[in-house]
Nucleic acid binder design. Structure first.
Length: 425
RNA sequence: GGAGAGGUGGCAGAGUGGCCGAAUGCGACAGCUUGCUAAGCUGUUGUGUCCAUAAUGGGCACCGAGGGUUCGAAUCCCUCCCUCUCCGCCA
């Protein structure tokens, strides 16, 4: 959500943001509906004022005086009734259109149509050189008996999978290591609901627009989250926090559910694009301070980079272009990790900065120090690690000629072994 | 799931149709008094939105949410949500 007063004063900036972000927001439709609504509201409130004053007088009148005054009151009321319907419709229309307005991207966001136009900012580590024909994570995992996609599909349809034995343990090891990694950085671990209300989905910006991507439990009007960001960011919705409570830095470990509608034929092989996965997500709620917000964005990006360094995986960081930016995001950095079977880098992390976009929708505020009025917080989030996607990188980058997979140093205390396999002949 | 009770301002708590945007108390803020602390006295103290403005002002809305009755609703009616107590079920 944008500050609607600001939108009225800067329609060009919003139009430009919509064009560059390739989002379908009806800026002019919004402006027209908004103007008409305010005009209607002014007339309506004038009538209400009149009616109210009349009612007050009626209270002190004698029965004879009443009869005449009542007729006038009823006429005013009839006129009021005629305006109420249109006013409500207009108000709803304005609110609906406002939900689609895009947050203008930060100045350093590159212009572009899609992820092909993202700008590489850094590259860390080198892709491994294999003295043999490297295998994909699917080939490795099936041979080792730790990944079973056909049976996963049998249980729950396409894009489902099973991890078994050392595969499931490797997943738990990465997740546990990441929790410890973030604990050291002062983040509070929270266990959150993964079935949430529409208010949470709308508040974080996933609705309207993302309904097709979410699993919906219609009976209870609840939605399975695609990321724990939704719950984590919504925790203090409707509250006014004290300045000294900020920033709030939290992580959650949760299952994530995505329908992946409209991705038929895309990334169909393996564990890259699946309906259900685990993710440790970092969310920060901070003060309305652009400089702080930018610094924090770098910090949460850093936490994820450090984690990839800990796993000793080659990755790069990209500055996501306007066309690949979400409606509410002001700026986004993705971490892409080297995946030999793709012959390239695949997205494993996404660090977003929202300014006050989510906070406005959630009505998430804080009282600045001193006697200031409450202000909307700034929110940010980034992945710490997501599995099984990270397993692709681990299995493929650490594979050996004999089909075994070396466990990176940092994971060994959690795994109890330094190698998975080799597969039985 | 069944039965009952209840949701009022930062908090506690009155208010059963007009004099209620809401008593009273506590808290908070400002001033006075006091050698310090404590106490006492006086005053102020909700939010949102719209309109006009140089500051300032005015209208409207808000007593869990939405709808209804009425000239007029915190108060009456309907629906929903949430909380508490008891019973049932259950990881």
């Amino acid at each position: 959500m944008l500050d609607l007063k600001w939108v009225r004063e800067h329609p060009d900036i919003v139009r430009d943001a919509a064009r560059r972000k390739r989002v379908n927001a009806d800026v002019d439709g919004f402006l027209a509906a908004d103007a008409l609504h305010r005009e209607t509201l002014t007339r309506l409130e004038a009538l209400r004022s009149e009616l109210k004053a009349g009612s007050k007088q009626l209270g002190g009148m004698s029965p004879e005086q009443r009869a005449g005054a009542l007729a006038a009151q009823q006429a005013t009321k009839a006129e009021l009734k005629q305006l109420e319907g249109p006013e409500q419709e207009l108000r709803a229309r304005v609110a609906e259109l406002a939900l689609w307005l895009p947050m203008p991207p930060a100045p350093e966001v590159p212009d572009g149509a899609d992820d092909g136009d993202n700008l590489e900012l850094a590259r860390v580590g080198a892709p491994p050189e294999f003295g043999f024909e490297p295998r994909s994570h699917v080939e490795l995992g099936e041979a080792l008996g730790i990944v079973d996609i056909p049976r996963g599909v049998r249980l729950a349809g396409s894009r489902n999978y099973l991890l078994l034995g050392e595969g499931a343990r490797l997943e738990q090891a990465v997740l546990q290591l990441s929790l410890e990694h973030m604990r050291r950085r002062g983040f509070e671990l929270v266990s959150v609901p993964t079935l949430v209300s529409d208010a949470c989905m709308t508040g974080t910006g996933y609705f309207p627009g993302g309904e097709e991507q979410a699993y919906r439990c219609e009976k209870d009007a609840l939605n399975l989250v695609g990321t724990s960001e939704v719950a984590l960011t919504s925790i203090h919705a409707g509250e006014t926090l004290a300045a000294d409570e900020l920033p709030i830095r939290r992580i959650a470990l949760s299952p994530c559910y995505r329908r992946e509608a409209g991705t038929y034929g895309k990334d169909t092989k393996g564990l890259y694009r699946v309906h259900q996965f685990w993710k440790v997500e970092q969310v920060v709620i901070g003060p309305a301070d652009e400089d702080w917000s930018r610094q924090e964005h770098q910090r949460i990006l850093g936490h994820a980079r450090d984690f990839m360094d800990l796993l000793e995986l080659p990755y790069r960081v990209v500055n996501v272009c306007t066309g690949d930016l979400g409606q509410g995001q002001v700026q986004k950095f993705d971490i892409e990790t080297w995946m030999p079977s793709r012959g390239g880098y695949g997205e494993t992390h996404s660090a977003s900065r929202f300014h006050d976009f989510q906070a406005r929708r959630l009505n998430l505020r804080y009282k600045p120090g001193g006697a200031g009025k409450p202000r909307f917080c700034h929110t940010l989030n980034n992945t710490v690690v997501a599995s099984p996607r990270v397993l692709i990188a681990l299995l493929e980058n650490y594979q050996q000629a004999d089909g075994s997979v070396v466990v990176p140093e940092a994971l060994r205390p959690y795994m109890g072994v330094d190698r998975i396999g080799p597969p039985a002949a």
